[in-house]
Structure formats: structure tokens, C-alpha cells
Amino acid sequence: MDAAVVLALRNVTKAFSGLKVVTDVSFDVREGQRTALIGPNGAGKTTVFNLISGAYSADRGAILLQGTDIAAKRPGERTVMGLARSFQNIRLMPHLSVVENVMVGQHARTRGMMDLLTPLWLKRNRAWRDEAESQLRAFGLGTYPNEVTANLPYGIRKKIEVVRALMSHPKVLLLDEPAAGLNTRETGDLKDFLMGVAEHGVTLLIVEHDMSLVRSLCEHTIVLNFGLKIYDGPTASVQEDPAVLEAYLGPRHNAA
């Protein structure tokens, strides 16, 4: 039996100044699954991400997170409801330390004024920091919790961003081109890291250009082209699909 659908798009459409970037896109993301969202440049992948995370609002359609339509919610509310994301170009807070960045990720779980207005070193708040530090350690990032993130190497910052996103205890984690800017060894490293994340019970939806990462990480793939969904099925058979081949390699290839 299939796992429950945790995130679903229903006929989502978005246009920028009259130009349709995403047209009637619908798909399901199933719980515990690792799903890739791929497509040629300009296919609308990042737009779909921004629509899901709330950076843009959809012109039409529904975005269902565990059955609730979140299309009208603010980005922060979506995070509280169980959605988290990373960014294509890492967006850590440059002046905060590693552990502080991760603790910012906990914000969605705070409740009430006492959580906000009591010093974090008080006994009642120790658990926050402990959780952040142990999470960093669990992903092999425990070496420099107090370093300002601006000083750290790219690959490490990338992972810290993912750990931060995990701190809101998301159901679904959106990763926007996690392998961009990484070399082969770092990409392999990242794959293991993301496997570990998935094992924590987080559903992954990934925009990615690096097909080797997609193949080794994701069991399910959705392909967009010119804002339309052209494939939605197992990753294994995506490269045999005629529509996908045409989108990537042009019609001539398909005819031949």
C-alpha cells in the first residue's frame, strides 16, 4: 500500500506579468519518500518551490499540507505547520554563530512570551541549546558551534542550513539545488547526509540538476517543462520517457 500523501499540489498556476511560469501543476508527495523535481532551465522548478514555501502566492490552485490548504498562509505559518526549506544560494545569518543559526530554526516551535523573553541560558531554556548542539553533532557538525557562519566553508554552511531547516521539526523538507557548487566528493558526502535526514522520518522534495544525486537519492521524480508537468513516476524510468527526452534533448532526438 502507498504511504499517505503529505504534500499535494492541485492545479497550481502562477504568472508573472501575464507570462505563465507554472501552469496547472498537480502532484503528490508521499510520506517518507524522497522526491526529485527536475526540468530544463526555466521550467519553473524554483517557482514551484517558492509557491510551496510561500515566497510567492499562487494565482490559482491549492497546496495541501497534510490535507490542509496552505496556499493563503504566510511563509512563517507554513513553517509552523510543518514545512521547511533550504535555499539555492545558502542563506544563513552571517553574523550568528553556527548554533545560533540552528536555534533560529527552532523559532516556529516556541510558545508564548516566556519562551521569547527569558534568557536562553536559564535552566528552563537549556533544552533548546542542547537540542541544537546534539543535532549538529548527530550530523557531524559539532566541531565549531560558536564560530560565526560567514567564516565557514561552503559545503559545511550548506549542511548547517539543512540542520537549521530540520529544527522546526518539518514533515516536508524542500531543498533547492543542494548539490550546486559542490564537487563530486562533497556531493557524495551530501547524499549520505540527506539519506540520514530522510531516515529521521522527514519527507524530502528536492530541486536538483545533478542527475547522479537524483538517481542515487530519490526514488520518485517529477519533471517540469515550460511550467507544465511532463513526468511523474519512478526515478528509474525517467530517462526512458519520450516526453522527458524531448524536453531535454530536443524533438529531433525523439524522432530519430
Binding site: 514555501s53 510561500g54 515566497a55 504566510r74 511563509p75 512563517g76 505559518e77 513553517t79 509552523v80 526549506r85 535555499f87 542563506r91 545569518m93 552571517p94 553574523h95 550568528l96 533560529v104 530554526g105 523559532h107 516556529a108 516556541t110 537549521r164 522546526s168
Partner: peptide
């Protein structure tokens, strides 16, 4: 540092 991300974090 980054108000967009801060907003996203709730």
C-alpha cells in the same frame, strides 16, 4: 541579517 529567512522561520 536576513529578514526573509527570519520570516520563513516563523
Amino acid at each position: 541579517d536576513d529578514d526573509t529567512v527570519a520570516e520563513l522561520m516563523g
